[in-house]
Simulated assay, not measured.
Amino acid sequence: MTKIACIFPGQGSQYVGMGKDLFATSWGNEVLETGKRILGEEFIRVLFEGPDEELKKTANTQPAILLASVAAWRGIQESGLRPDYFAGHSLGEYSAYVAAGSISLADALRVVRRRGELMQAAVPEGQGAMAAILGLEGLKVEEACQRAGSEADGVVGPANYNSPGQIVISGETDAVQIACQYAKELGAKRAIPLAVSGPFHSPLMKGVGRDLRPVLESIQWQQPSAPVISNIDAAEVTDQGVIVESLVGQVSGAVLWEQTIRYLGEQGVDTFIELGPGKVLTGLVKKILPGVTLLNAEDLTSLEKLLAYLKESR
């Protein structure tokens, strides 16, 4: 019997106008009105019209992606679909908790706006960096980071285990640059600097987790309707009591995305539905578990196609 996981994208998938036609539906308009109430009319204008530079600011990007992802989820929810699992990449973990009924959309928007503000301000511009290491296994990426950290006397380490042969590293700028060189020496095909505003998912973000904790602890978390797979350890979260610790740790810890998808595959999940802007996660899942069914909804056309497929396959 088919098992379904709904997965939600993180920062980097955003684009101006994302989800606009979904927000025009009855369920999507409810999501939009919540966004207006919590974040204001000017935020919605940036979401719909840009400019792109404004949307790319972390404090705007995070609630914007959450809003578009939840609009797509509500369309799925209207169909009566009840997934077996939820997961999200970094920021997407918050979308997963909204979908699982653990946190209201309004509270989630407040939290991720604050999370974005804290992350944006955590490290002075130019002092932190991230890079994608392609074509090198995890142990060798970790070795490159350890060697670079010692040489530069700085912080650098894996930030995202995205898929086989794609690991993102994060830390202090000099240490990241040296780690890229070591990675190439160890056999990496490429080491690509990323255009980001900070060294996310590195120990340099521990202060963000500390400052975010009281915000998370102020939320009345509910038990998820289905297990949410945590970024920090690729384990099932079924009890609201561990959510805060997981999300605090997630800010400065590595996102174990490949491990998350492999775990879901081991549980018998054979259908993955990406909900929100872009198809980045769909591409990663395809590399991790070739042969599974991959679906997505980011606008009305893709949502209708998805719902038609689900109806025929039931």
Rank of each mutant, 00 (worst) to 15 (best):
A148C: 07
G40D: 06
L32M: 14
R113S: 01
R74W: 04
G207H: 07
I65V: 15
R147H: 03
G278R: 11
L139Y: 10
K311W: 08
T293G: 07
D299K: 13
V196T: 02
G171W: 00
V244F: 02
A191R: 14
S230I: 00
E30D: 15
I273Q: 07
A122C: 04
S79G: 10
A148P: 00
M1P: 12
F43D: 08
G50A: 09
A72N: 05
S246N: 14
I243E: 04
S95C: 03
G171M: 07
I288F: 09
A235P: 01
A71T: 06
W27H: 15
G101F: 08
P227E: 01
W221C: 03
A152Y: 05
F48N: 12
R110W: 05
I76V: 15
I232T: 15
V176Q: 06
A96V: 03
G10D: 03
A131G: 10
Q127E: 14
C145V: 01
S79A: 15
A5E: 09
E236P: 05
A148Y: 04
S252K: 09
G135V: 12
K279W: 04
S252P: 00
G50Q: 01
G128C: 09
M18Y: 11
L55W: 05
A100W: 02
I273D: 07
D270Q: 13
S218M: 10
V112A: 08
S13D: 05
V208G: 07
A226F: 11
G92D: 00
G198P: 02
V123T: 01
L300H: 06
